[in-house]
Design a protein around this nucleic acid. Sequence first.
DNA 1: CACCTCTTTGTAATCGTTTACATTTTTATA
DNA 2: TATAAAAATGTAAACGATTACAAAGAGGTG
Lengths: 337, 337
Amino acid sequence: MSTIHDVAKLAGVSTATVSRVINSPDKVRSITRGKVQQAMEMCRYKYNALARGFVTKKSNTIGLIVPNINNPVFAESTLGIQDYASQHNIQVILGNSYYQQDLEAGLINTFLEKQVDGLIITTANPKGGQIKSLLDDQFPFVQLYSTIKKGPVSAVGIDNYKGGYEATLHLVELGHRRIGMIAGRFNVSDRSFHRWHGYKKCLRDNDISYDSSLLLQTDYALSGGRECVKQFMGLKKRPSAIFCSNDYLALGAIKGAREIGLVLPQDLSIIGFDGIQIASYVTPSLTTIQQPAYEMGKIGADVLFQQMADGNKPVQKMLDFKLITRESTVQYKVPNK
Amino acid sequence: MSTIHDVAKLAGVSTATVSRVINSPDKVRSITRGKVQQAMEMCRYKYNALARGFVTKKSNTIGLIVPNINNPVFAESTLGIQDYASQHNIQVILGNSYYQQDLEAGLINTFLEKQVDGLIITTANPKGGQIKSLLDDQFPFVQLYSTIKKGPVSAVGIDNYKGGYEATLHLVELGHRRIGMIAGRFNVSDRSFHRWHGYKKCLRDNDISYDSSLLLQTDYALSGGRECVKQFMGLKKRPSAIFCSNDYLALGAIKGAREIGLVLPQDLSIIGFDGIQIASYVTPSLTTIQQPAYEMGKIGADVLFQQMADGNKPVQKMLDFKLITRESTVQYKVPNK
DNA sequence: CACCTCTTTGTAATCGTTTACATTTTTATA
DNA sequence: TATAAAAATGTAAACGATTACAAAGAGGTG
């Protein structure tokens, strides 16, 4: 494989000039430029971005860690990040933490060794040691989907507390009083945790006493929702509505409810969270809290790039979410039995 | 940031020894090793994988190009690839081609500049120029989801022709004679193209004359399926069943059919392709041809790693797919009207 | 044409590792 | 204990670009 030296020799110029032709062509006379370009063609020169990264100490790569790319909401924000990044000639290394802190820590480490210029993380634990040491090193990174409103960490997300509140309020306003919650595990998702707090607050505000048997924590997966809904329906005092802390859980819950013979949405109202596209395509279509995932990715990348450029003070951005009312939630009716 | 030199000086050894401690610790006496490790701690040494890549000419990175990570089937194979790769200490740079050849070509270029050790591509056009030049350069890469059974390109996929045939056969065996197909655009997906050929062949084998008005090509997206099904139902002679060349299209079609008042599956049978998880969670649950996406990713990565290791001859692997019969397809009944 | 300024090009060090080869130290054996 | 063999360590060049600084060339002016 030919290098900048071969090109230089062939064109009869110095390597500095070749480098200039590549990086700032207007700084070299057009005659010379022509010679160099011709030489590059002749020896089928391929630019080595790794070598450049080595000397400039910029890899033009950022690391992205998501819990699971499987979940469309993360796929969507990933698209936002990638589109933004590629516009700026930056590539994205992707890693899945599978909601596991040790895996996440490992990924962060590897990415740092790879000299990524920045990191975007939807973290299991925003207070984890790995994150702290990123901060200590002043390394550019931003948390995505977070709830953090201020502090040393740059973050882009929505107010999950409020989101949980509104989701619950929607059910309350439909007349439901016995409202279950199927939540992603709190110890790996502070999003879920905050949504739960919003849920509790809303119940309290509406004089509904909190019943801990109506909270189920589970893995963030279709199967999780499916199993939990069955557990709820085994209860003596069943809920008439369920708030699921993400759409995948909700889709699973719909399926599970059907499997035990419930008629939806009459027998059970279900509301999700995220607003993934597919949620509007199922039956009954899913009422949900929609967050702007793609946008969040773009903005997250933008914030990161600021950090990278001017090592600015940390920035937090709270985006708006939106309650999307669809078929899966209906007015409460006393069961006739 | 401290380097290997700082460590060496602090530990009173040469850089070579430090390097050995990092890469093959058993080659250095444990006393020395201890001194070095201590020194590394003391100056908070961080390994620079970029520098290593530069000298070894291995970036320990592979490039992955998918049409759209949004589609769960690609997310799934991506997981397979990543899991396999991270077990081998390799990272994955991800790019979306959005089914566009120029974007794909751009990504390939950038990834090559970044000195990726190999490439996994689900390509828009397996005969495109960019792919050809990869082959000419003997660059390790494998095509995923492809149909290629032999030739110079390593490929892992399923027999899409057969898949299309079986999907159609399933409908035929249910008594359907007027069977539409909603397909991803042939010019950007040879998978779709091959499935269509299987579809045609199956019709012919069963003495059903091919009607070109029953083929609709569209973008691979939920919305595509939704629109096309409406177009079909506007026909004088409507199909009683539809084969969608992927599940997203099918899910869209289900939605679209509902919107124009059809009762599913009685009024219209729909079969998809891919076997994404969510397809079993919708109503009616989707009959589909399931391909082993996660496995495909793993095997694809494995094949790639072979190529990288011993520059072996190209390998093609055809995996098995499976017809999963669910609620969305039923016996044909003469419409009562 | 001499002089100055501005543009273009060249020189050579540098980035942080790895590694072939040379040298030293340790261990095993007679 | 001498010596050969094996193990551990060191030396220094190399990888392919960038870039500060120096040098040369071009162009303009009086």
